[in-house]
Computed example of a mutant assay.
Amino acid sequence: MARLVKRGNSWQYEISYRKEDGKFTKLRKSGFKTKSEAKAAAVDLEYEISKGLSAEKKNMFLADYFEDWMILYKKDSISPVTYKKYEDTLKNLRKLAPFLKLSEMDRDIYQKLLNKYAKNHAKETVIKFNNHVRACLKDSIDDGVINRDPTRKAVIKGNKPSKPREDKYLDYSELKILLEETEKHLNPEYASPYLVITAAKTGLRFSELLGLTWDDIDFDKRLVDVNKTWNYKIKEFGPTKNESSIRKVVLDERTTEILAELKNNQSEIFKKFGITNPDNLVFYNLKNGIVSNNAANKFLKKMLNRLNIDTNLTLHGLRHTYASVLLYKQINILTVSKLLGHRDTTTTQETYAHIVKELEDQDLEKISDILKYL
Rank of each mutant, 00 (worst) to 15 (best):
R7S: 07
Y13E: 05
E14V: 11
S16V: 13
R18L: 07
T25F: 07
T25E: 08
F32K: 02
D44V: 00
K51Q: 13
K51E: 12
K58I: 02
N59D: 12
M60R: 00
L62G: 07
L62Q: 05
A63L: 02
D64Q: 01
F66D: 09
E67C: 13
W69C: 00
I78G: 04
S79Y: 00
T82D: 10
K84R: 12
Y86N: 09
E87P: 05
L90E: 12
N92M: 08
K95R: 15
K95Y: 14
L96C: 00
L100I: 09
L100D: 00
L102G: 01
M105N: 04
I109Y: 03
K112M: 12
K116G: 11
K123C: 04
C136P: 03
S140K: 13
D142T: 09
V145W: 13
V145R: 03
I146F: 14
R148M: 08
D149F: 05
D149G: 10
V155A: 02
I156W: 07
P161D: 06
P161C: 01
E166S: 15
D167E: 14
D167Q: 13
K168H: 13
L170G: 03
D171N: 15
L179W: 05
L179G: 07
T182F: 00
K184M: 15
K184W: 02
K184A: 11
P193I: 12
L195F: 09
G203D: 05
G203R: 06
R205I: 03
E208A: 09
L210Y: 03
D215A: 06
F219W: 05
D220N: 08
K221W: 12
N227D: 08
T229R: 03
T229M: 09
Y232L: 14
I234N: 15
K235D: 14
E236F: 03
P239M: 14
T240W: 04
S244L: 01
V249E: 14
D252K: 08
T255V: 09
T256E: 11
E257K: 14
K271P: 01
N280M: 03
L281W: 11
V282F: 10
V282H: 02
N285K: 11
K287H: 10
N288F: 11
N293R: 10
N294A: 14
A295Y: 14
A296D: 07
N297P: 04
N305R: 05
N305M: 04
R306T: 10
L307N: 13
N308W: 02
I309E: 11
D310L: 09
N312Y: 04
L315S: 11
G317Y: 03
S324K: 10
S324D: 15
Y328E: 15
I331W: 05
I333R: 06
S337K: 04
L340P: 10
G341Y: 06
R343Q: 15
T345M: 06
T348Q: 07
Q349W: 04
Q349E: 13
T351V: 15
T351D: 09
A353V: 12
D363N: 13
D363E: 14
E365F: 06
E365G: 03
I367R: 03
D369V: 00
L371T: 03
K372G: 00
K372M: 13
